[in-house]
Design a protein around this nucleic acid. Sequence first.
DNA 1: CTTGCCTCTGACGTCAACGTCAGGTCTTAG
DNA 2: CTAAGACCTGACGTTGACGTCAGAGGCAAG
Lengths: 131, 131
Amino acid sequence: MVRTKGVRVVEVGQVPLVRIGDLARSAGVSVRAVRYYEQQGLLSAQRSASGQRLYPPEAAERVRFFQDMFAAGLSSRRIAELLPCIDLGHTDAEQRHMLQAERERIRERVTELQSALRRLDQIIEVTATHP
Amino acid sequence: MVRTKGVRVVEVGQVPLVRIGDLARSAGVSVRAVRYYEQQGLLSAQRSASGQRLYPPEAAERVRFFQDMFAAGLSSRRIAELLPCIDLGHTDAEQRHMLQAERERIRERVTELQSALRRLDQIIEVTATHP
DNA sequence: CTTGCCTCTGACGTCAACGTCAGGTCTTAG
DNA sequence: CTAAGACCTGACGTTGACGTCAGAGGCAAG
């Protein structure tokens, strides 16, 4: 076990593994959030002898992907359904249907937001002439 | 008091008023939602002698505006702050700041969503080649 | 060895926009 | 007059993605 720039790293064969705090920091989320993702079946972790979670550094990318999807309004359930598509690189009919449905949902949200934006702009415009 | 096409209407002077159920239907929300908006200070209502809420028909437009703003991620608190800007037709510095901030927030959400859309499209594209 | 930070597992708290239920009143069609 | 809806006021329940706290253990530095 070595220490590199403040981040404790466990070398298992050639694979460096980081602990939950480091993952959380590098992904920009809380430690609680990472544990939550595991609980929801989105993220798995190796365990050290003493039971501490150990992650490969790529896990940070995956966590950021979760954030993107949450921001897009997907539930953790949907994201869980999404992961096999990514990991296996192929989809069945049901999965393709789900992907299209979510895509459409997000597109609708975008147009909703743009509509709201226009309404806000109207208000700003109107009241700008009457300060 | 008259009945017009199934909608009970109260004539007070020249102003026709509708009851909460009619407002809810014409705005496409639940009765509970309308009461909630009143509780949050977004909507006021005249009361009949027996205490029932009475609304001018334009209230439906206002309720739809609430829906737009909620869909854009504004809280009822923010919407309440917004209403005087609309009703009075002018804004002070603080209000203008708030309007700009919310505008910017929504714009960020849009780009987030578009980013998520691209990621989903990538997945769809990749897996489409491997059915 | 101890100090200080990190991690662990529960488990309860939060927040917003309502849903839902209870128990009672109003209104109107028939 | 009566029965069926619509409406009233509380007040508790729901959902999702975590926050937060408690109590206990792990681990590198001095």
